[in-house]
Design a protein around this nucleic acid. Structure first.
Length: 498
RNA sequence: GGCGCCGUAGCCAAGUGGUUAGGCAACGGUUUGCAAAACCGUCAUACACCGGUUCGAAUCCGGUCGGCGCCUCCA
C-alpha cells in the first residue's frame, strides 16, 4: 500500500507512514455536544470514516480515537438555559450524535474519550508544563507561554509577530491583562461552577480550550502518534496550540501527519453555528436518505469547499436540498442496480467462467488506488459509476431473450457491491426497503397516498387487459401529473417517484 | 496588515507539464402497445484574464481580475 495523503504540517502530499508497522493510530477532533450535529459535522466525520475504512481495507490495524468534548462554556450555558446539568445535556447530545453517525453509516470510533473523564490527565499535563516553565499561573488561570515553544505557528504557517491579535473580537481585555503575551492561551481557567469545575493544584477551575485533546490523544495513542485530523477551522488556534503544549511537555513530535477537511458552504459562505446558516443532520434526514448526505460528501475532494443550498416554498419554508436530492438519485441508482442484480433468476445463471467486464473486475483496485491518492473520493465514485453501468449491462444481457450470465461474473458483481459497502459505506442497506422508504417519503411530500396510486394502477391494469390503451394512457398521464412514474414489466407494473 | 485556498464545457466535479475522469441536464438511438428504468451515442479539442518558461501549459513562474477562509467559538 502506498497511501499518499496531504499533510497540513508540511503543506504537501506525502506518504502516510505509521510508527508501528501495520498499525495506524488516529485522533480526530470530535464534537462539542451541546447541540445536534450539523451538515458540516456530517461531512467531517464521513470523510474520516472513509479514511479509517480505507486503511483497514489496506490491511492495517487502526486505532481510531475520536473524542467527545463534554466540558465547555457553551455546554454550561446551554444546560443552565435548559435548567439541566451539563452532564445530562452532553449525554443526550452524545446519544443523538451516535444516532446520526450510524445513520450516515459511519463506523464507531474505537475509543471515544470524554473530557469529563480525563480531568486528572489534563491536570497532570498542565502541571508538567508549569514544571517545564512552559506555562504560568495568573490570577487563578494557567496559561501556556507561547514564547517557550519556538515552533509555535508551524502548523498554520504563520509567525507569532504577524498575528492580528483579537481579530475575531472575542477576547476580553480582562483576560488579555492576565497574559504575558497576547498569543498565550489558557490551559486551566478559574471557575467555581458547581458541576463544571474541579479542584486542582492551581485552584478550582476547569480545563482550557485545547488541553483536553492533547491529554486524551497522548493518553490513548502515546506521546507521538500517526495522524491527527479535524476541520480546517481547527488548524488555528486549536491544533497549533495542541502541538505547542504537547511538544513542549514531551519534547517529542506530537502527530506525524495532519489532515484537515474543507467546509460546507452555502451562498459561498462557510456554514457555521455562529453565522446561523446551518442545518442539523437530522433536519436534513427528513428530506433525504442519510446515505444521500454520505454520497454528497464523497462527491467532492475532502479539502475543497462543498456547496450546499436549500430551496424555499411560497411560505418561505424549507422545501428541499437540491444537491442532496441529486445525490439521493445516485444512491437510488446504486440500490436499483443491486436490486436488479439480486433479482436475476437462477435459471439465467450458467455455471461457467465468463469474461468479467473490466469495470467490475477492477473495481476494488480502482477504489483503492483512488483513495490511495489523497483519499480521492470523487474518483472512487467515478469507478463506482463505471461498475454500476457494467452491472446493469450484464443484468440487461441476462434478461434478454435466451440471455444469461456466467456464474463467475455474477459472483464478481456481488463482490463489487460488498467492496463498495466495506470501503465507502454505500449500498449496504436492504435495496427494496430503502427504495420503498424513499418512495413513501416522496409520495407523502406530494400530498398523495400510496393507496391512491395503487388504486389508479389497478384501474389501468384493467384497461390494459381489455386493450383499452387510450384509457390506460389517460391513467398514466394522470399519475404522471401526480409525479408518479409507472414501469411496466412482464412481472407487473411498479411505480416510482423520480 | 499577515497567512492560505479557489476560478475547468449548460450545471456539479476530478485531473495539475504531452494520453477517456465521472455525474446531472439536453438531444438522438436500442427496448416498449405507449412509457419508465437500463444501455449506446452526441453535447466535450473546457480549463478567469495578461505575460513568461518549454518542443509542448488548464497544469510551472510573474502579474491582473473575481470569490472565499483563518489570524484565540466553530468540523
Amino acid at each position: 500500500m502506498a497511501f499518499a495523503l496531504y499533510d497540513s504540517l508540511t503543506a504537501q502530499k506525502r506518504l502516510f507512514t505509521t510508527q508501528t508497522p501495520g498499525h495506524a493510530k488516529l485522533y480526530v477532533c470530535g464534537m462539542t455536544v451541546y447541540d445536534y450535529a450539523h451538515v458540516g459535522h456530517a461531512r467531517c466525520y464521513t470523510i474520516y470514516d472513509v479514511l479509517v475504512r480505507h486503511l483497514r481495507e489496506s490491511g492495517m490495524k487502526v486505532t481510531y480515537v475520536r473524542n467527545i468534548t463534554d466540558v465547555e462554556d457553551k455546554i454550561v450555558a446551554r444546560a443552565k438555559k435548559n435548567g439541566e446539568t451539563s452532564l445530562a445535556l452532553s449525554q443526550r447530545f452524545t446519544a443523538m450524535f451516535h444516532e446520526d453517525m450510524e445513520r450516515l453509516h459511519n463506523l464507531p470510533a474505537d475509543i471515544e474519550p470524554r473530557v469529563s473523564e480525563h480531568i486528572p490527565d489534563i491536570q497532570a499535563l498542565v502541571q508538567r508544563l508549569i514544571d517545564k516553565g512552559a506555562a504560568y499561573e495568573s490570577a487563578g488561570d494557567v496559561y501556556f507561554r507561547v514564547k517557550a515553544f519556538p515552533g509555535y505557528g508551524k502548523l498554520s504557517h504563520r509567525k507569532l509577530d504577524n498575528l492580528e491579535y483579537g481579530a475575531s473580537g472575542r477576547t476580553t481585555d480582562d483576560e488579555e491583562s492576565r497574559k504575558e503575551h497576547p498569543a498565550d492561551f489558557a490551559l486551566w481557567k478559574k471557575s467555581d461552577e458547581p458541576n463544571d469545575s474541579w479542584p486542582s493544584a492551581f485552584g478550582r477551575g476547569r480545563p482550557g480550550w485545547h488541553i483536553e485533546c492533547s491529554a486524551m490523544a497522548m493518553k490513548h495513542l502515546g506521546e507521538t502518534f500517526d495522524l491527527h485530523a479535524g476541520g480546517l477551522d481547527l488548524v488555528f488556534p486549536h491544533h497549533e496550540n495542541e502541538i505547542a503544549q504537547s511538544e513542549a511537555a514531551t519534547g517529542k513530535p506530537y502527530a506525524n501527519h495532519w489532515m484537515h477537511n474543507g467546509f460546507i458552504e452555502t451562498n459561498k459562505e462557510k456554514m457555521s453555528k455562529s453565522l446561523g446558516n446551518f442545518f442539523t443532520a437530522r433536519e436534513v434526514f427528513n428530506y433525504v436518505e442519510p446515505e444521500a448526505v454520505r454520497y454528497f460528501v464523497m462527491s467532492v475532494h475532502y479539502r475543497s469547499p462543498l456547496n450546499f443550498d436549500w430551496t424555499l416554498d411560497a411560505e418561505n419554508k424549507v422545501s428541499g436540498f437540491p444537491q442532496l436530492e441529486d445525490a439521493e438519485r445516485r444512491v437510488e441508482y446504486i440500490y436499483t442496480t443491486r436490486e436488479r442484480l439480486l433479482a436475476i433468476p437462477s435459471e439465467r445463471v450458467v455455471d461457467t467462467i465468463g469474461k468479467t467486464p473490466e469495470a467490475i473486475q477492477k473495481l476494488k483496485t480502482s477504489l483503492q488506488s483512488a483513495l490511495d491518492d489523497d483519499l480521492n473520493m470523487p474518483i472512487a465514485l467515478g469507478a463506482v459509476s463505471d461498475f454500476l453501468r457494467e452491472v446493469n449491462e450484464l443484468v440487461d444481457g441476462a434478461s434478454r431473450k435466451k440471455g444469461n450470465v456466467a456464474g463467475s461474473v455474477l459472483v464478481a458483481a456481488k463482490d463489487g457491491f460488498a467492496t463498495i459497502g466495506r470501503l465507502l459505506g454505500l449500498g449496504t442497506e436492504d435495496p427494496s426497503a430503502l427504495l420503498l422508504r424513499i418512495r413513501a417519503r416522496r409520495i407523502k411530500a406530494r400530498g398523495f397516498t400510496e393507496e391512491a396510486v395503487e388504486a389508479k394502477i389497478q384501474e389501468r391494469i384493467a384497461a390494459r387487459n381489455s386493450k383499452d390503451f387510450a384509457l390506460a394512457d389517460a391513467v398514466r398521464a394522470e399519475l404522471s401529473a401526480m409525479g408518479v412514474e409507472l414501469m411496466d414489466s412482464p412481472t407487473g407494473t411498479t411505480w416510482r417517484i423520480p
